[in-house]
Write a protein that binds this DNA or RNA. Structure first.
Lengths: 211, 211
DNA sequence: TCGCCTCGCGAACGGATGTTCTCTCTTAGT
DNA sequence: ACTAAGAGAGAACATCCGTTCGCGAGGCGA
């Protein structure tokens, strides 16, 4: 029932290739000649079957009104703004709910899986190896979601007011201070007054540029 | 000269939105009504200007034969076959020059930057923490390119014939043996006879699934 | 003022294109 | 063998749609 005849998979294949090459869908006669079919009605017939099977969508009465549903796989990418470098001494303007402004210096494109389920994700370039034992190296790009709170032990980007810098660390609450723990046994933790620490974002994932 | 008139950027905008929504380009009359223009010839006129400026490409005499050049941003993704797990005791069929066979259990989609400049890239799931100090953790997915040789110190996937297993290590040639060095100071290196080692692939990059 | 160019309007032409109708041909069920 | 359904061929039709042509309104330098 949901088997595809040779002709039908050939048509699907042809449409995919056609769009790949030309960036617009083929007309029925394009398909006809491209697949060596002898009549437009045969193409129409099979297109209807394919539509019933949910493999494509057609806009009636519209030329080239064919949309491959299954081919929607690609385009599963998101552009993430790189707001700056972390632990570089610069304050980071965390994006508000509306999309980031236009002053973004750079963006990285990643597949949606890298930030799945998170909103308003932004990215920062990591300087230094303070999180090396959490497998975050110098030069990596980390993805964060805006947050103002965090559970103990979470990796967060925090703004240290007195130092005027943003850094990525694991955050632990102690009696009357906050401990920012590097993941690098050669580096001591930073202790800070709670009033001096403001959480900017929560770690989601990271990538390492090739090379 | 290369400025865009209000109408022209409006048209570009409309085309982009139209394609975004319908997945096929608008006809000239779609643009006409969508932009509140009173004549098809005006659309045609501006489309020619936009084509001259290199912002789009038109296929003459073809309905909806409009292709946005600038909108090519997305689609920069590649599907990489995940051939199995590494250090899991199973031999890995390295893909030949023709595209991998159909028995691929899984694929991951990544942006082209992750494998830039490499051919026939395949992926493996990492089991264990033997490369932890090279920032490759248990559960990571590594990307490799087929290779049969490697320079000293390179991270390679090697097939150990007597153990019947594939493992990811740094490779060093010593007098009459090969040293496979884990990046984990709690693990000893593996020494093997050169005849017993066959290199399967060279490390390119890795990603870590979210969570 | 006179060309010349840019930009826009409206209409008409002809090819492109989706739809539909009528016929075959084959296959499976009875 | 008869019939119904699936698949296809061929042609006709009605739009859809890109192109072109004539006309006009401004702007600009000579």
């Amino acid at each position: 029932m949901s088997e595809l005849s040779t002709k039908q998979s050939q048509i699907i294949e042809f449409i995919r290739d056609f769009i790949d090459e030309k960036d617009y869908p083929p007309s029925i006669r394009d398909i006809q000649f491209g697949c060596g079919i002898s009549s437009t009605s045969v193409v129409d017939y099979n297109l209807r079957r394919l539509e019933e099977k949910g493999l494509l969508r057609r806009d009636r009465e519209v030329s080239r009104g064919i949309e491959l549903l299954e081919g929607r796989r690609r385009r599963g990418t998101v552009d993430i703004p790189v707001l700056g470098s972390i632990a570089a001494g610069q304050p980071i303007p965390v994006p508000t709910s509306d999309r980031w402004a236009s002053d973004v210096e750079d963006t990285v494109t990643v597949t949606e899986e890298m930030v799945r389920g998170h909103e308003n994700v932004f990215a920062l370039r990591v300087k230094g190896t303070s999180m090396i034992e959490d497998l975050i190296d110098d030069g990596d790009i980390v993805f964060l979601e805006p947050a103002t709170t965090a559970a103990d032990g979470e990796k967060v980007a925090v703004w240290l007011q007195d130092r005027g810098e943003v850094t990525l660390k694991r955050l632990y609450r102690e009696k009357d201070r906050i401990r920012l723990q590097p993941a690098n046994s050669s580096m001591p933790p930073i202790y800070a007054d709670p009033d001096n620490v403001s959480i900017q974002g929560r770690f989601i994932s990271s990538i390492r540029p090739i090379g």
